[in-house]
Write a protein that binds this DNA or RNA. Structure first.
Lengths: 188, 188, 188, 188
DNA sequence: CATGAATGAGTCTTCATTCAT
DNA sequence: AATGAATGAAGACTCATTCAT
């Protein structure tokens, strides 16, 4: 009615964000998500959730993209501040492992790449693969690892991080797996 | 009256087997299992499923044991008929990968190692770890790989096989991942 | 758009009332209530029943309150229009007995006084006890009965009305029991 | 096969008794009885329970008769050892109240007298009424109470004992109710 | 756009009851 | 007679989805 850029718009955006946040939290622990429960926690009506995300798929997809973006965006900085090997190792231990531990649901994001049953977040998978690709490339350039590595294979090798849990000595386990993979990536 | 072992008994056993088979199929793709759906597919009453498996846990456990036994039992033969390296590679490509591709649910068997919430298939996980352990030991003895490897770490490295699907060129992907891991296992 | 108070709201209220009515009928004869059955009879979805009354307790409570309010609310009028003794006798024969005959479930309202397991209709019981209390007090004031009577005891004495049924000559039986109790209440 | 009176017979009788005992215990606290549960607790097959008691009614009936017999059988002894008034009071406080408190299910035995819905243990009710009748008669003979009392009315007046519970000061409440009724029974 | 009431399909679970052995 | 496996109806409860306001 006035000069404001439609307060409604702002509300809408906030709703979008809230729903996404709640859904992310929900997926992080149980891989189950109920539109009704999400609406309740986000303090909006169910209908609103449906308006923003017409299907469960669209919601999951949005969540995963948001989650994965973190992992992807940090890569350039890591490469700028660390040696290629350290960047690789740090990315895994400080970012990938953390996310995998908490967001069990992310497993299904990866799953997508292969299981046609749930086509969902192919994008998420590809983004992740891209991040690994960058890190691998840096290490190839540095002469640390073979130049015929398929980043997808490396990412798959790291998938075992899903099966770690905070209670255990996960940091050690993460290091062990990283060592194994890193060793496997080196020039023969 | 003579050789027959009570047809009723036979029926019961068949029911048991059918339920198990249906449940296995169900778990293979979705990690979800509905007693009702299982009963429907197995063409028995719900009550029958409950009689055989009073709790979801008992059913899942039974399925996993049945599934994993395969993988474990074959190891000795492989070691008898192949070189340690080939036994390892064959086990992965011909057995582990196959099962992982079809039995998505098995993922949760591995999960157990970490998620204490669901103590269920600890046995399954341990059995799998045992199988890997035997194969690794044979290769250590043959001087192929380092002697400080943790079989659990190796198994975790192979977890990525879950994310392969039949439609893709999974055989090649399996080989790639196996190469990566094998390389990582070798003496430095 | 003007005077109408949102038809939806009206529907909702009607639903509430219908469910309550059906539940009351249900409880009147069997003390058993099935959410499914209630939904069926009230011609609403089960979910609607759950929305209005999230737990069995909340439903039972609502029913009892509705039922008992009648009994309580009529007392002042009775005392205004009748002598204390007649008010007491009329309340029993015209109200309490009627309700007890039809609403078998009310028994459990009384039960509450003792069975701590189901705290539910404590209010209902207390309301009833309050009604009796008022009637007794009026008769004490009129010098009709002892002044050391515990209204709870009187109410308990009347509990036998539950075991009357319409088919029998219940009016006579009610009178008999009322006489017995009244006699017992009089000054010794 | 020999001179023994069929060991089978003995077993059968034992089964009968066991089932009855288990059912009694079951009814004493919850008024719910499941044939399957009873079979389990009595350590017999469900089929056996059905053989002995074809319908739920027949089982309930048998249980109630067994229970009530106690209350009835003790009356002569009480009258022999106490004054009529004390016999009446003792019967109530030491027997009737106890049973009513523990065997909530017995309530339904009384219910029967009136509620045609569940015709079950008319016999039980009549037996109880008979016991009261004897006690009242003794007190009439002793000149303690009016001679026009209907034992059924007295029994109904005592029905409130159902609504006492062990946790409360039930002994006192029982005495209060008994006083009220006794007072009401006395000559005017 | 947002809301949230209503719906009903579907899952879980318990039991009464039958029946082959 | 006794057994207990099998069956399926029925009730509890959850949730995805629609739609009137």
């Amino acid at each position: 009615m006035t000069g404001s850029v439609s307060p409604r718009r702002a509300d809408t955006r906030r709703n979008h964000e809230r729903i996404l946040a709640v859904a992310a939290e929900s997926l992080s622990c149980s891989a189950e998500l109920s539109f009704n429960a999400i609406a309740r926690k986000a303090e909006v009506g169910v209908g609103t959730v449906y308006r923003h995300f017409p299907t469960p798929e669209s919601l999951i997809l949005a969540v995963y993209e948001r989650e994965v973006r973190h992992l992807v965006d940090v890569v350039p900085r890591l490469l700028a501040e660390h040696s290629p090997e350290d960047a690789f190792r740090t990315w895994i231990s400080e970012y990938l492992a953390h996310y995998m531990m908490t967001k069990r649901g992310l497993a299904d994001a990866l799953t997508v790449a292969t299981k046609s049953c749930e086509k969902l977040p192919a994008n998420a998978y590809e983004a992740l693969a891209g991040a690994v690709s960058t890190l691998v490339a840096a290490n190839v350039a540095a002469g640390n690892v073979r130049d015929d590595l398929n980043p997808q294979t490396v990412l798959r090798g790291l998938a075992g991080l899903f099966y770690l849990n905070p209670a255990d000595s996960w940091r050690e386990h993460t290091a062990d797996l990283t060592d194994l993979i890193w060793n496997g990536m080196r020039k023969a």
